[in-house]
Amino acid sequence: MRDNTLKYLLVLPAVLVVFVTAIWPLIEAARLSFTVGRLNRPGSLDQYLGWENYLWAFFEEPAFWNSVWVTAIYTLLTVGLTTVFALGLALLLAPGGRLRSSAQALLILPFAMSPALIGVSFRFMFNPEFGLFDAFFGIVFPPLADVSWLADPQLALAVVVMADVWGWIPFLTLVLIGGLASVPRDTVEAAQVDGASGWRVFKDVTLPQLAPVLAVVVILKSIFSLKTFDQVFMLTNGGPGTATQTLSHYIYFNGMKYGQIGYSASVAWLMVIPMIFLTYAYAKFVFRKADQ
């Protein structure tokens, strides 16, 4: 067999798996998004409707826009907070040493927890009667003592954000520690001798050299934030009302609970668009790094 044929044969299984698990569902979802697609109406999965579902989402559904809004705020807050905290932690832990290495090893624990588990444990910790955090915040800051965190629209979103940031900091910290290790020590020391203060060394030398890794971190976290579902489902189930209903949750509710598969497929496809941009940017950064 010629090498040329062999190389295509060797990647074929992987391509097939991706096709069956990702490409085909995307195509099928696209087809469904143009149908009436109601689970409780036989035959409606093949009933062509044109752009009706999309128009409905855009012009007739405030709940859709609400979830877009929630997702946007949620993404902005989680990406921003996680990146800042992870960068800070990475700078603290990167120098190594026995204590720091143990801390690095411990860091992986929160990341090892499933998002659903994080959701449940945070729900318990913010329980108004026996929640740990609820009591803790009450003691530290008395005006917060009687607040029912998960019942207040803004605070509930804050709790969801908090849980997500908590769960994601460790992994991104480890990624950034790796990134910091690739910043040549020579350049940092050269800046120190050249007369730069700690802050200027960071701003002028470390940060610019860390930028490609930082970009990957921001893009990766944006992708994960945009599609957040499990934590929201377990922690607030989108409530109170729809205050914490992210797009994924909205899609799930419409599709699975109300049986509007066609409509939720169209919203899902609306979410695919930003995802494609982010994935493209991610791939560009990752492979650009590999080139160097």
Binding site: A190, Q192, V193, G195
Partner: peptide, 17 residues
């Protein structure tokens, strides 16, 4: 280091890329 008023040339040059 910044307050010692020395200049240093590094083995790998330590240029800011």
């Amino acid at each position: 280091p910044k307050d010692r008023d020395v200049a240093m040339v590094f083995q790998n040059y330590g240029l800011y890329p």
